[in-house]
Amino acid sequence: MGKIVNTVLGPVPSGDLGVTLTNEALLSVLPGAQYAYDITLDRAAVFETLATKLRAFKQSGGEGVVDVTGQFAGRDLRLYEALSRATGVHLIASTGQGPEGMLGGYFLTPQTNPPTPWPAEKWADLFGAEVTDGMVVPRVERRGHAGVIATAVTAEGATPTDVELLRGSARAALATGVPVTFVAGADAVAELAVITQEDLSASRVAVSSPGSSAAKLAEQGAYVVLTETSEAVALAEAGHADRILLATGGAGQAFGHEVPEAAYDHLISAVRADLPGELADQILITNPATLLAVKED
């Protein structure tokens, strides 16, 4: 089969992915929002909403979507499996957590003496197991293998726990061969350095919300996730076409917080309209396939 990508329905050859969006949130749920008295999370309605979006994406030439919500921000594996079967779109799910402010108390003050946040090695074990053994469906089972490790850094600046999350994500990526994607905080270049200090190549990392550091990150070999085609053109003109990924910057459906609504088909249309064909294919097909392919030892 050659190089493969882990989808929710099993491995597929990376060359079969086609047009793929690598940093999306299909279902974005603020942790705990599903239990709020004023929020109704109707899975059948969610399915119909997302299926409509994915079918439109498919009609626009789309083939794959990577969900980077990680373990507790909306990931629903059974829903994703059903959506993939119904729409024909490859869906790649992620493991991971972060930033610190979104972690549960179990991870910040575990029953240790003295209570201390989780270190990198524990994060690496947790994330790595969801790649090799399957992602956890709470209180039920493991099913499907994560295709990406996703984390995030506190916007105001990396905390010690954020640093451990980055290190743990890098170690899990090294052990399993899947890539890391992270939402940058105040210093994307320094945050990337935390990962590469763990001996993970920058070419196995995608950085979203890079701010003014996009070119520097690309120069170091990392992929840069952008939300505007004009930014993609500028970075390509600077010689970094092979480091660009594009994302909607929104969510297919969100609960508990305000998130822009994602229109996956509109992004494809915008890319095709605004970018030369060769560059569009590089960003939409070649770069995602290269990043997502599980790296063999």
Rank of each mutant, 00 (worst) to 15 (best):
L217E: 07
V66K: 00
V271T: 11
V153C: 03
Y223S: 08
P110D: 13
P160L: 04
D133P: 09
A232S: 08
T40R: 15
G70Y: 06
L54Q: 02
A251H: 03
A236D: 10
L284D: 07
G61D: 06
T159F: 03
A172T: 15
I149M: 05
A25V: 08
L91D: 06
A241G: 15
N113R: 14
F127H: 07
F255P: 01
G88R: 04
D281A: 02
V5Q: 07
L226E: 04
P138G: 12
A152C: 05
L245M: 10
D67E: 12
L103D: 05
H266V: 01
H90A: 15
A218I: 01
A251M: 01
R142E: 12
E141F: 01
N6R: 02
R204G: 01
E198Y: 05
P138L: 08
V205L: 13
L174D: 04
T154R: 11
A206S: 11
A152Y: 05
R43C: 09
I283P: 03
S203K: 04
K53P: 04
A82F: 05
D265T: 00
S212Y: 11
V225M: 06
S213Y: 04
R78Q: 13
P13V: 07
D162E: 11
L30Y: 03
V183A: 13
L126C: 10
K53M: 08
L192E: 08
S269N: 14
L83F: 14
P260E: 03
A45D: 14
G96E: 09
V8H: 04
Q111W: 13
T116E: 15
A190E: 13
A170R: 00
A293W: 02
V46L: 04
A193L: 08
N287R: 01
M102Q: 09
G18V: 14
E258T: 15
G104K: 09
M102V: 06
D125F: 10
R243S: 07
L103F: 02
S213D: 10
R75E: 06
S60P: 08
P138S: 10
E48R: 08
A263V: 13
G177A: 10
D133E: 15
A263Q: 11
L26E: 00
V194C: 15
R55S: 11
T40N: 12
A236C: 04
E228N: 06
L126G: 08
A120R: 07
Q97G: 10
T112H: 12
A173Y: 10
T159C: 01
G211E: 08
S84W: 12
G211M: 08
L246D: 00
E141G: 01
P288I: 01
T20D: 09
V148Q: 00
V140D: 15
R142A: 10
F107A: 15
A73R: 15
F47L: 04
F127I: 12
D274N: 01
A262I: 01
G239S: 12
R139P: 03
R243P: 05
N287Q: 02
P276N: 13
A56H: 14
T290Y: 07
A33M: 10
Q97W: 06
V140L: 15
